[in-house]
Write a protein that binds this DNA or RNA. Sequence first.
RNA 1: GGCGGCGUGGCCGAGUGGUUUAGGCAAGGGCCUGCAAAGCCCUGUACCCGGGUUCGAUUCCCGGCGCCGCCUCCA
Length: 452
Amino acid sequence: MLRLHDTATGTVRPLEVREPGVVSMYVCGPTVYDVPHLGHGRFVLVFDVLRRYLTWSGYRVHHVSNITDVDDKIIDRANREGRTEAEVAAEYEAVWYEAIDALGVRRPDADPHATAYVERMVELIGELMDAGVAYRTSDGVYLDVGRVESYGLLARQTLESLQAGARVDVDDQKRSGHDFALWKAAKAGEPTWPSPWGGGRPGWHTECVVMSLDLLGEGFDVHGGGQDLAFPHHENERAQAVALGRTFARHWVHNGWVVVGGEKMSKSLGNFTSLTDLLERVDGRAYRLLVLRSHYRSPLEVTPATTADATAALERLDNLARRAGEEALVDVEPDPAALVSFRAAMDDDLDTPAAMAMLFDLVRAANSALDAGDHAAAARSVATVREMASAVGLALRTDAAALDHDVAAMVAARDQARAAKDWPAADAAREALVARGWVVEDTPAGTRIRRR
RNA sequence: GGCGGCGUGGCCGAGUGGUUUAGGCAAGGGCCUGCAAAGCCCUGUACCCGGGUUCGAUUCCCGGCGCCGCCUCCA
């Protein structure tokens, strides 16, 4: 039974699902106004690992993750670049999925778009008005958070203490600084939809309530996202559901930041690296491994040093997989005892660092067994490594790169020279290969090369 | 001001009241190798500071110091 940290209680507690054997999870997706950065990469990896682990554990998982395609920043960009909002959103949604695919993250079962849900959002806002918890101002419709019971649950503070530190000037039309826009009246040049309160567009916090309840239903199991979404975004989603007497998420999961030199990576701080840039120089699997080696709620340093570290560790896994292929190890069942330990670690609030430690212990065991010629033991360890790796979405690479004629000729030259014990010629061939970015290894079967 | 988190060996990053230990990377030594690479073996004696509890604390409590986050858009 998986135990997960729940932001609403501040405790690690069993994931009690609504329907046996099924997990419904909603993870807040991106606002598509710019390229994704490393923080986005981390959160999709974290929830991909959760999803895959749940699936591996035998659950059927319904995973919904939205695309916010109407928002101030999209409008700003469209205006700046003389394009339509739809064009901007489409462009960055494509970039988003390209990056996500490169990370080996499974796409959600559904990716609702805000613009497709405006009518339903208008309905929900109408219900909030009818319930007397929302009110109009000259620029839109707001939710009166003071009317919502337990507002502040996810911030783990009372409304009073939140207000005590409010950094925003209280708009005199708002009853409270924490009241938030459900509907924003359209200004000139902005996209607009009709509503009983005039043309405009929905506030950000409304889309996720409507879409999650529509696609997953009341009392869905997991609602997740980055820690900065807990408050106010998730708080505000919840407030709308609660105000209407709807049961919202049963379990709140939030992942920690990507940090650089101890500071949060964010757009506003300007210290971000785009995911696209990272993926140009680092294997997406290495980023996954880096994410897996820290706990999902801890801050994670992502720097050239830590990605290089993870890349080297990943190579160790790939080397084993290739070696296993060369030795033609037969497929056997994974070691059940090892899987019990693995499951225990993962069930403990996704203790992926412990799981990875087990994985690398098995890598050593497999290599040792291969060194000793014990193919049965090696096969079992390798099968276990594969099983654990696949449970968290880590694919091991075994395929050899295709060689062009020049490279193949250098390999042949080295084999000939070595057969003739012509060491200077053999070394020259190796140096030529290394210069082209290959790692050269001698094996009983001859020269083997792989990409650095 | 309110709320929360963190401070572990060269780096990243887990964890625990006490036998032997995370794990990875890097480093040094060794085995293997024509030399390498890969792999294996060995090595580091870490836990911010000061008190307290305890037979015993890196781990619990209190107090410092330092860092970070949320309370505004943000994964």
